[in-house]
Design a protein around this nucleic acid. Structure first.
Length: 419
RNA sequence: GGAGGGGUGCCCGAGUGGUUAAAGGGGACGGACUGUAAAUCCGUUGGCUUAGCCUACGUUGGUUCGAAUCCAACCCCCUCCA
């Protein structure tokens, strides 16, 4: 198909969000004509969304920016079942309390990317527990279950991989796709939602919803998926030493978040600028043209723009400044992440390995790891390599700024502050 | 319910009585080189109060001077049969 007519699909296309669409021309016509209500579902399996979710959130963002209406669907109901897609093993069954707590915790990130409210183009957030929890089993089987063919369900990738890999797939999880399909139908009935977006791994589930809709008499529904993002060297995106790149600030500070983007591989810079920032395309083209070490300017722009989206401009600039002082001047930036240490502990003397360990700086997971890193030359105190693992930190080690700077490797720093 | 196969460290996967904290690979972290990149090379990869101690091969017991390795019971997974 030629260039999309609608703003929505044009932006998504030129920025590289589109992996697959059930009917691109049909959806384009609909988007050009009027309001497309669209949703993305998020399971409440963890206390925060992470970078992996960002792509679909950005799709909701652009959806709203181009005049359409986004729905963020919280999977309060489906999380009780567990999505088997792409998983080797059954998910742990979460308690209702955990799900509720996760749900609350997830909400915060969304408001950064989309505007919620009661107006026409305002986004809404709904929880599928609302309609899934009160379902009556027999009624549901008769109304919805009869439209599903087990033969066909068995042919879906999410199911097939489990069967082929000889991992158990419980009946509970087997029902997940039915519930997700039903969500789509329900959202159409309640809000006139006609488009479901998601990662490419959700394709089967989304198409199921379209199918169910046809059988249950909804208007034509559409599916749109974004690619699974891997880095230029093929690794899954979003994993770092300290685990997932969380969106919640209390789990991943703005500074660390900025660092994550700053360390993007060269080959990913342009793609990431398009996908994870809202910088104009001509600005992105300019940044992408930078060669050699100049590309670092593009990486900084990426980091600051991406961080600003999530944490605000102020936090992003602060993170950039902290990084500039630390890496470019080699100076001590007092805005580096810090950990409080009781003054009496330093008076008594704090073993350097313990200081790096989980009780204080948490740069290493154990003192054993700290010991190994010290042997390998990976630990530094106030920028001086730790050569003696029996070294003891005292008040006399405080810098003029009144802190002790602990570093693991070249990039990860924590300041100990006596209190 | 019956018959057979299997459960090993973050993951995959060797190992069938003794220097086995457990080969090899992947991943991850650190070092060197760089541009806070990639690639490459080197090192590390259970915990602790580290010349030592403790905990670990599904669980619990047992045999043995000594078990991931042998025995028993149990739990879980897979395949076929009912």
């Amino acid at each position: 198909m030629s260039l999309p007519k609608s703003d929505f699909l044009r932006v998504l296309t030129e920025r590289g969000y589109i992996h697959q669409c059930s009917d691109l021309a049909g959806l384009d016509a609909k988007a050009a004509a009027g309001e497309v209500v669209s949703y993305v579902g998020y399971d409440c399996t963890g206390p925060s969304l992470h970078v992996g979710h960002l792509l679909s959130i950005m799709m909701l963002h652009w959806l709203q920016q181009t005049g359409q209406k986004p729905i963020a669907l919280m999977g309060g109901g489906t999380t009780r079942v567990g999505d088997p897609s792409g998983k080797d093993e059954s998910r742990k069954i979460l308690t209702l309390d955990q799900i509720a707590a996760n749900k609350d915790s997830l909400k915060t990130a969304f408001s950064r990317f989309i505007r919620f409210g009661d107006g026409k183009g305002d986004a809404i957030m709904v929880d599928n527990a609302e309609w899934l929890a009160p379902l009556n089993y027999i009624d549901f089987l008769r109304d919805v279950g009869r439209h599903f063919s087990v033969n066909r369900m068995l042919s879906f990738d999410s199911v097939k991989t489990r069967l082929e890999r000889e991992h158990e797939l419980s009946f509970l999880e087997f029902n997940y796709m039915i519930l997700q399909a039903y969500d789509f139908v329900e959202l159409n009935r309640r809000y006139g939602c006609v488009l479901q977006m998601g990662g490419s791994d959700q394709w089967g589930n989304i198409v199921n919803g379209i199918d169910l809709g046809r059988r249950m008499g909804t208007p034509q529904l559409y599916a749109l998926t974004c690619p699974l993002i891997t880095t230029a060297s093929g690794a899954k995106m979003g994993k770092t030493a300290s685990g997932a790149v969380w969106l919640n600030a209390d789990m991943k500070s703005p500074y660390e978040y900025w660092q994550f983007w700053r360390n993007t591989e060269d080959g990913d810079v342009e793609r990431f600028l398009k996908l994870f920032t809202i910088l104009p395309m001509d600005e992105i083209a300019r940044l992408a043209a930078l060669k050699g070490s100049e590309i670092n300017e593009a990486k900084k722009a990426l980091a600051t723009a991406a961080t600003a989206l999530l944490h605000g401009h102020e936090a992003a600039e602060a993170a950039a400044e902290t990084a500039r002082k630390t890496f470019e001047e080699g100076a001590l930036a007092e805005t580096l992440p810090g950990v409080d240490v009781p003054r009496v502990v330093l008076e008594a003397g704090l073993g350097v390995l313990t200081a790096f360990g989980p009780d204080y700086a948490a740069l290493t997971a154990s003192t054993g790891e700290a010991r190994r890193q010290a042997k390998g030359g990976g630990l530094r105190v106030n920028d001086i390599p730790v050569s003696d693992e029996r070294m003891v930190l005292r008040l006399s080690d405080l810098t003029p700024e009144g802190v002790i700077k602990l570093s693991l490797g070249r990039k990860r720093h924590v300041l100990l502050r006596p209190v």
